[in-house]
Write a protein that binds this DNA or RNA. Structure first.
Lengths: 237, 237
DNA sequence: CTTCATCCGTGTGTTAACGCACATAGGATG
DNA sequence: CATCCTATGTGCGTTAACACACGGATGAAG
């Protein structure tokens, strides 16, 4: 069950928070708070998108689904960005599904308001584009990582990315769920997780994973985690 | 050796060709023709980017390189788009390398001209953003494909994508080169290629691959090829 | 026409991960 | 507290792909 978390004020959306006061205040009336329960489907592949969402305490997974039903995540969005870039990039829809991976709060803005604001140009547009660029880097690195690195390395990277967007040490998710994100077998997750438990990196039981030694995860992850983080930091100040 | 190919007039850059006459004519004086030899490195990871390039008869591969030297492609750009999106998305540099995979012609535009034109908004900006969205879809599908599909499926998809951007049936590339694109062993390429030769899809010898039965490649590829193509067609008319 | 570098074929052993089957155990529910 | 559902552990056979080694062939260059 998603419990109430820290108020959004203390974990604002960083993309919005980085805007000049003028832009921020113009946008404020068009932003409505909304609550995301765990597992909520925000966008369905190829379906109409009515809002964009700026996560504050929540975070969202971008997933592709194959014809045979298997799935894999291509990106993860937390309070550093927004969900729904297709609405200003053009295209109206996207071929991926977006689902809530960490319950919490977000601000939403209607598609029409977003498109109007984007067209103004200025700092808001720049911030949206820089964020999109950082997302491209994340997706690209995921592509390469999927090809070149082991299950354990990728699991570590994924837990680190999730940890960064969760703001606390307990992740609420089953091995089954993680296997759908990483595009691997549930059993493979169990084996890798077991190994990380032995290393003292994490503990877990029945859908609750606790990060004990983040450093161990960092050492066991591939270089991809740091590459994406560095580039993200560079692009988003 | 790259031989002279059809004049660029007959294979224009489609992104540019799709613009209203007014925009096209404004841009024309800022576009300079340039020739790409096979294998030329257009951008080095994290290095300054002085121009963007609109391929006409050439095509370009976007590559990531790991610390241990292994590489994998994340995207392929032909005359449907442009190379150097980071210059208008913000960021100035990107963490990937861009290399010429098919020798030929392209138009180049200076970084400053590009940024100036982008800021005008209008149709050119819209076209650039829609293309970027289609590239995101391509990269995303590559991420998923890398995780879920076999060597042979991915090789077929890759040859189809290359074929679409090459405009003729002979691809000039060694198994070694392809292995660096797909992020796999050279031997694995040889085995898969051999199999496709037996199926009658292709013939090849010493760096020249000829596509005999495209249909066979389509049947042997994963769904990813068609997914990306459909979305590309939708976004770029 | 000989030499040489490059390109491709092929085999062998090893490993990572899959597919499947089934066991165990903790919570929830009545 | 008996039952059931869900989450995780584990084993076994199979497969895809890697790592490495080496051989043969072809085309370019002297």
């Amino acid at each position: 069950m998603p419990r109430p978390q820290e108020p959004s004020r203390s974990i604002p959306n960083r993309l919005l928070a980085g805007l000049p006061a003028e832009d921020y205040e113009r946008l404020l009336p068009r932003l409505k708070p909304t609550t995301f329960p765990l597992g909520k489907v925000i966008y369905e592949s190829q379906k109409q998108m009515d809002y964009v969402y700026f996560p504050t305490t929540s975070h969202v997974s971008l997933l592709y689904t194959m014809l045979n039903g298997s799935t894999a995540e291509v990106g993860l969005v937390g309070n550093e960005g927004l969900v729904g870039i297709a609405l200003f990039m053009g295209g109206e829809t996207t071929p991926n599904r977006a689902i809530v991976q960490g319950a919490g709060e977000a601000y939403k803005m209607s598609a029409s308001a977003m498109q109007e604001e984007f067209k103004r140009g200025g700092e808001f547009q720049l911030a949206l584009l820089r964020y999109t660029q950082s997302l491209i880097v994340q997706i690209s690195q995921t592509a390469v990582c999927n090809r070149l690195h082991t299950t354990e390395q990728r699991l570590c990277r994924w837990m680190l990315m999730t940890h960064d967007r969760t703001h606390h040490d307990e992740l609420q998710m089953t091995h089954e769920f993680i296997s759908n994100m990483l595009g691997i077998q549930r059993e493979a997750v169990s084996i890798a997780a077991h190994h990380l438990k032995e290393k003292g990196a994490i503990t877990y039981a029945r859908g609750h994973i606790k990060i004990i030694e983040r450093r161990v995860l960092e050492e066991s992850a591939c270089e991809c985690y740091q590459m994406v983080k560095d580039e993200q930091d560079r692009l988003l100040e």
